[in-house]
Every structure is written in C-alpha cells, then in structure tokens.
C-alpha cells in the first residue's frame, strides 16, 4: 500500500500551503497522475479522503488528472502519447501500451519522456 504514504505526502504539503495562505477551508485539490505512475487511483483517493478528515481540507473535492507522457523516437520524431495511442486504438489504461508505441514515421518502438508524475497541481482555498 504505497498509496498511503504518497497520500500522506500530498496532504502534508497541501495543508502546509493552505495554512501559509491563511485558508479556512480547502475546496478542491487537483492532482496530476502520470500514466506510468504505479498508483491505484481508487486506493489513493480512499487514503486522501481518510487523511483529510478532521483537517481544514475535510470534505474537499479531489480532481485527478491524467498526465500523458511525451514520446520520442531515435529517428527524431516526437509526439504526445495521448494522440499516438488514440490513433492506434489501444486501451489507454494499460501501462504496456505506453511501452510499445511504434513511431509513426519509422516504426521503431518509441521511448517515453517522464510519465511517472504524482504532482499536486493546485488547490482551491477559502480565506
């Protein structure tokens, strides 16, 4: 359950930023999750909700956004995986799919730039 410690890191950071800004409440927390990050969204959401109970972020809305990594090929081609996968019709929640995207110009398997993000993008607070 490494989701639990990641959720702890997120909530600690959110609360400290919120307090620094004299927040009375936190309405929304927006988190970007890379498509290659090995976290289970349901599990992390469960932990986040449990950890915000009895804090100024109690009852906050969590927004989880997918981050699609950019892909790069030896031949110099680069593009975003979201488009490339849509074009290939592959199932986007399958990590393997991101590791097997062929280059549209030369056909070689491309490699990903990043995609292992777990980033607190923004919070929406009441002051």
């Amino acid at each position: 359950m490494h989701e639990y410690s990641l959720a702890c890191n997120i909530i600690e950071h959110v609360i400290s930023v919120a307090e620094l800004n004299n927040a009375k409440a936190v309405n929304t927390i927006t988190i970007g999750v890379g498509k290659l990050t090995l976290v289970n969204p349901d599990q992390i959401l469960f932990c986040l909700e449990a950890l915000t109970a009895d804090t100024i972020a109690q009852g906050t809305e969590f927004v989880l956004l997918d981050i699609f990594p950019d892909m790069e090929c030896e031949c110099g081609y680069s593009g975003n995986s979201e488009h490339l996968l849509k074009d290939s019709g592959r199932y986007m929640n399958d990590i393997m799919a991101f590791l097997e995207i062929p280059c549209p110009t030369c056909g070689k398997i491309m490699h990903e730039l990043g995609g292992r993000d777990l980033v607190i993008q923004s919070i929406d607070i009441e002051q």
């Binding site: 990641l6 890191n9 997120i10 950071h13 959110v14 930023v17 919120a18 800004n21 927040a23 009375k24 309405n27 990050t37 292992r116 993000d117 777990l118 980033v119 607190i120 993008q121 923004s122 919070i123 929406d124 607070i125 009441e126 002051q127």
Partner: peptide, 16 residues
C-alpha cells in the same frame, strides 16, 4: 469569504 486558487506543482515522487 475569499476564494483563491493556488498553483503548487509539487511532485511527491520527484521529492523522493
């Protein structure tokens, strides 16, 4: 009451 969006951009995995 003042509503306010704060951009953070803190990546907890990159912190590790």
């Amino acid at each position: 009451m003042l509503m306010h969006v704060i951009n953070i951009g803190h990546d907890v995995l990159k912190a590790n």
